[in-house]
Design a protein around this nucleic acid. Structure first.
Length: 313
DNA sequence: GGCCCTCTTTAGGGCCTT
């Protein structure tokens, strides 16, 4: 099971929706309209395919590696034509072979997890002294209500408006939820997206040392616990398998969007814009490094794996 | 501030996030 097979139709939508990102201030979901092109393509597709390939990290000294097995579906490849370069498609098609088991059963394998790409905006870099002021997430499965974003009231002056454009007056209002009020809404949203008996896989860029510890500290400050079936993946070490990690700026989200020629519109450093960009980057990274969803799960980390210090009282 | 790399490990510096 690859991200390709999960997201092709959704990424097709993403591609078409760039420039039409959510501008919702508080808890309004963003619906997806299924493309007629994708639907038409799917009507003419053959059964599912899968293949096994050898994939190794080429970055010297990299400690993170992903083993093999990728699964592709004919419909995924075909419906992604408008999203990917012809060279990418040729690469994918060259990997295809019949999976007898799937062909006989005719059952399309389900994704082993709900994959949620997310990003936060904060009042600064310190998870102890700063606060989250915006949260955005996109479910790679797509469909209705697949995106969700909200501003969050930090109950303090925002010193870095020049970074994200979010001012104190925008969030320090009675109609903007505090993080403690936001948590149950987030939990309810995630539950609405979660498949029974399967984990939730959160994806963020530099999430291991920034987004996830920030979230954990906010949960702790509100005396709440994260669900035990939440797993996390950081795209930064994955990207560093492809680029020179010692070169300044080589693995930033901005550089990666430029590397893959991903058009980025809208306000810079806003959470949903970065989420949309990261969705594309994730797809491209996993394609280039031949990383499957099971491999992402195998290399994910849990809350207990993140070193955090208590939030300041 | 954690992670990673190296001119390292008895340390120091750069990257990445807002």
């Amino acid at each position: 099971m690859s991200l390709y097979s999960i997201c092709c139709g959704n990424f097709h939508q993403l591609w078409n929706s760039i420039g039409h990102s959510c501008r919702i201030r508080f808890l309004k979901s963003h619906s997806r309209i299924i493309s007629e092109t994708v639907l038409q393509n799917r009507r003419h597709k053959t059964g599912p395919f899968s293949t096994s390939i050898l994939a190794r990290s080429t970055r010297k000294g990299s400690k993170q590696s992903f083993s093999n097995n990728r699964h592709l579906h004919g419909e995924s490849v075909e419906s992604s034509i408008e999203v990917f370069k012809q060279s990418d498609l040729q690469h994918l098609k060259s990997l295809q072979c019949y999976n007898i088991e799937e062909k006989v059963s005719g059952v399309k394998p389900e994704c082993p997890a709900t994959i949620l790409v997310f990003d936060i905006e904060t009042t600064g870099f310190s998870r102890r002294g700063d606060r989250i002021i915006e949260f955005a997430v996109r479910d790679l499965a797509g469909g209705k209500n697949s995106t969700f974003q909200t501003l969050i009231n930090p109950e303090r002056v925002i010193p870095n408006t020049h970074i994200h454009g979010i001012s104190t007056n925008m969030v320090c209002r009675s109609d903007i939820p505090r993080f403690g009020e936001f948590i149950p809404i987030l939990l309810q949203y995630v539950l609405s997206r979660q498949m029974a008996g399967k984990p939730v896989l959160w994806v963020a860029h530099n999430g291991k040392t920034f987004d996830v510890p920030f979230l954990i500290c906010e949960f702790q400050r509100c005396k709440m616990e994260m669900p035990g079936d939440w797993l996390f993946v950081d795209t930064l070490p994955i990207a560093r398998q492809l680029v020179d990690g010692k070169t300044k700026g080589a693995a930033t989200l901005k550089t990666l969007t430029e590397r893959y020629k991903i058009p980025v519109n809208g306000d810079a450093h806003r959470a949903m814009q970065d989420v949309t960009a990261l969705c594309y980057v994730l797809q491209k990274l996993t394609l280039e490094l031949k990383i499957t969803v099971p491999q992402l799960l195998e290399n994910s980390f849990r809350v207990s794996d993140v070193a955090t210090t208590p939030a300041k009282k």
